[in-house]
Amino acid sequence: RPRTAFTQNQIEVLENVFRVNCYPGIDIREDLAQKLNLEEDRIQIWFQNRRAKLKR
C-alpha cells in the first residue's frame, strides 16, 4: 500500500486528540476516521507511530 499523506488539517486534529488521549479506543478512532476521511487502521498506525516518536 502507498504511504498515506496526511493534510495539515488532519495532523492538527490528530495531534489535538493525542494531547488529550494517546491511547484512543476504537470508537474514537472510527469517529476520527469518518471526520477526517481516512481509514481507521491508518489512524491506529498514526497513534502507534506518534507514541513511538514521543518516546524518542
Rank of each mutant, 00 (worst) to 15 (best):
L14I: 07
V13W: 04
R51Y: 01
F6I: 11
F6L: 10
K55C: 07
L14F: 02
N37Y: 03
I26D: 07
A5W: 08
T4R: 14
K35E: 12
W46S: 04
F18N: 00
N37A: 07
Q44H: 15
A5K: 15
Q10P: 00
T4I: 12
E40D: 10
D41Y: 12
R19N: 08
D27R: 13
R50I: 02
R1S: 05
R19K: 10
P2D: 15
I28F: 02
R1I: 15
K53F: 07
L54K: 10
L38A: 09
N21D: 06
G25A: 10
R29C: 12
I28C: 04
I45E: 13
G25Q: 02
L32H: 02
V13S: 08
N37K: 11
E15P: 05
E39M: 04
Q8T: 08
E15V: 01
L14A: 00
Q8G: 06
D41H: 11
N37I: 05
I45L: 11
K53D: 11
R56E: 12
Q48P: 03
E40Q: 11
R3Q: 14
R19M: 04
Q44Y: 04
R19E: 07
R42V: 13
L14G: 01
Q34L: 09
P24V: 01
N16I: 00
Q34G: 09
E30G: 10
Y23S: 11
I11S: 02
V17W: 00
I26N: 14
Q34K: 10
F18W: 08
A52K: 11
D41L: 07
I28L: 08
F47A: 02
I43E: 00
Q10D: 07
K35W: 02
V20I: 13
T7N: 10
E15I: 04
Q48L: 04
C22A: 11
V20Y: 03
L38T: 13
E12N: 09
V13P: 03
R1T: 05
E39P: 07
T7L: 06
I43C: 01
K55Y: 05
R19G: 05
L54F: 15
E40V: 08
C22P: 13
Q48S: 12
R50L: 01
D27P: 10
D27Y: 02
T7K: 08
N37F: 08
T7W: 01
L36F: 14
T4P: 13
G25C: 07
G25H: 14
P24I: 03
K55Q: 01
E30K: 14
I26W: 10
R50D: 05
L14K: 04
E15G: 03
L32A: 01
N37W: 01
R51A: 06
Q44I: 13
F18K: 01
I26A: 11
N49D: 12
N9S: 12
N16G: 13
R29D: 02
F6V: 09
F47S: 02
P24W: 00
L36R: 00
